[in-house]
Design a protein around this nucleic acid. Structure first.
Lengths: 353, 353
DNA sequence: TCCGTCGTGGGAACCGGTTGCTACGGCGTT
DNA sequence: AACGCCGTAGCAACCGGTTCCCACGACGGA
């Protein structure tokens, strides 16, 4: 309980050994746990450890064999609520499994992503989890396949979380959630209310998450024998500002619609504000739906009808499947389901605008 | 560009050396950069590196001298928007300075906090950043002081970010933002509108962040010669659910008030919904204000008047001051300012309820 | 009493790098 | 032609641990 002071710099195992009058190996064994050491020796060693406030260097441990394994988490921006929830799931599960958790933000830059993966390989991370959609180009597949091989040959593992799968053969674990299915059900719900002109506030045109949701939007229309007006598909990014701006623009352009489906709750939030600013009521004048079911969705006014995505579960699953995987096992590809949660922002259209 | 395959396991520097027909030291020098090596040798080594897809083990590097420094970030829950923004700032600045960034969630458990700090000491992290308020007990100061000493003697540094400072003498860097001042200004603004019974939806009773804001609330009243009704001070935690529950309870209990100040935007969001559910309009029937200025505050309806806290800046500053600190320098204690951002949720009281 | 065994602790090699010191070969100079 | 210097590469020690293998002392059984 007494606070020791004046230990100049970190002390090594040999310092402890010297102070306890034993050899370094003995200290290692006392600290290691299972090797038989007499009570007297153990006592002396423990006292020296306490007096020196000694902690074994984790890096040295790691190099010599038994080290704290790490695991890395690469995402675009921890600030997005859905990313944050995934990160939370990852972190919880990782520490539960005794892993440390490195986090890297790419800020959407592919070069950063590459750099980070290389770093993680150097760190001998047990797994690298890449999070969030991207543009699904051949270049992406090639590059990511290389990462996967590179990581695999180093005994690590690449996990794609909410990101498009690679060509078969790549040593990757893929965990996706059903963007298309969720959007399909959501839009079907909106159409079932009688809406026929549904504005879609999407993400960047090549972004797989956005694309998946857009496909669901389209499919739901087709299932009803409807062909949506292409001019009702707008593209921005996944921020609330984008939603706000897009909505303002749509209103200014005099687009006709009775409902709005946003690719993201964040986008929906911005759109909602723009709607309010224009003096429109929701769902009286126009219905609105989001996607993600972030906690805030309930507190928008009206409470937002949206699609629930089990983000935290997703994160947990990502680390679990990656870490508990037996080396020879076939590559896994999980697809998590979503469900729409109906709240107050979608209603039958009143009168066409 | 060709993808090599079948490298069984990670390769060592000696493997590379063997393949290039040189010694390990030469490989190290080629990779290290500055030591003079002939072009021919360098070429052979680089080719071997490429063929083996070799990356030096960062842990071994670290132990031998030049390693990638890490920095740790300990918070309660990455899911909270303000935490997430701090985390973002920390991460950005850390990678800008060439550091890796470990993140640990304590889930509010002090034992976890201690464990994590110990781990970080083992990792020889360059700095450990503790984020977010806690109960400011003597036990807290004692415990944290010990951490600080422990870290300092290991050449690392403890940073307290939005957390109460320690007794002078503890080797700590403290970065706070002005909870009391912000709340003071905010509540003064509310009072200036004519409100006299202002409900305060606070955090846990001993939580320093909550307490600071509560002090500001109180001080603003005193400055006007008012003494607030103690029954108007409610306590929960910083979640939207707490805000929702507290507000419902207050309404059910028939508490009289014309304005509500929430300790957090999240809490305000929950409270707003409860208000709406009770058929009350904001700010017509009751005014509402929050704290934090999370992006969503703008999209509540009405847009939330709140206090802006430069969270990201806070995170960046934390790592910068910790990392760029010269060892002998005096301990720093920064206090960042806040400012209230006036939106639509606060107005003059119409009629007393 | 002698010997085998068990319980304990130490020595040294090793993990995968870095780096100080040294050795060697080729070149220019006197 | 011999000397010396410089550029380059290798050896070996070291970073801070772990762990294999062996030695030593005490104890118990024959």
């Amino acid at each position: 309980m007494t606070r020791k002071s004046g230990d100049a710099g970190r002390s090594t195992i040999r310092d402890v050994a010297a102070r306890a009058g034993v050899s370094a190996s003995t200290v290692s064994r006392v600290l290691g746990g299972v090797y038989p050491v007499s009570a007297a020796t153990r006592g002396r060693v423990m006292r020296a450890v306490r007096e020196l406030d000694y902690v074994a260097d984790a890096r040295a441990k790691a190099i010599a064999g038994a080290g704290t394994p790490t695991l890395a988490f690469v995402l675009e921006d921890i600030t997005g609520p859905s990313f944050a929830h995934m990160a939370h799931g990852v972190e919880r599960e990782a520490t539960r499994l005794g892993h440390l958790c490195l986090v890297c933000s790419t800020e959407g830059d592919v070069r950063h992503e590459l750099e980070f993966v290389e770093m993680m390989r150097a760190q001998r991370a047990a797994a690298v989890i890449l999070v969030g959609g991207t543009a699904d180009t051949p270049e992406y597949r090639e590059r990511t396949h290389r990462m996967a091989d590179s990581l695999a040959s180093a005994g690590s593992r690449l996990v794609l979380c909410g990101r498009p799968p690679l060509d078969p053969g790549a040593p990757v674990t893929v965990i996706e959630y059903d963007n298309e299915g969720g959007a399909y059900t959501l839009v079907a719900h909106v159409l079932a209310q009688g809406h026929r002109r549904v504005l879609f506030l999407g993400g960047r045109a090549d972004h797989t998450t956005a694309l998946g949701r857009e496909r669901g939007y389209l499919a739901a229309h087709r299932a009803r024998g409807l062909t949506p007006d292409p001019s009702l598909l707008l593209h921005g990014d996944f921020t609330r500002d984008a939603g706000h701006r897009l909505m303002q623009q749509a209103l200014k352009d005099g687009l006709e619609f009775t409902a709005v489906v946003a690719a993201t709750d964040m986008v929906a939030a911005g759109a909602l504000t723009a709607l309010h600013e224009a003096g429109l009521t929701v769902p009286g004048d126009v219905s609105l739906a989001g996607y993600d079911d972030i906690p805030f969705a309930r507190d928008l006014h009206p409470a937002l009808t949206t699609v629930h995505v089990p983000y935290e579960e997703l994160g947990r699953l990502a680390v679990r499947t990656a870490l508990e995987r037996t080396p020879g096992a076939p590559d896994e590809h999980l697809l998590l389901g979503t469900h729409v949660v109906v709240r107050d922002s979608v209603a039958a259209p009143s009168s066409p605008r």
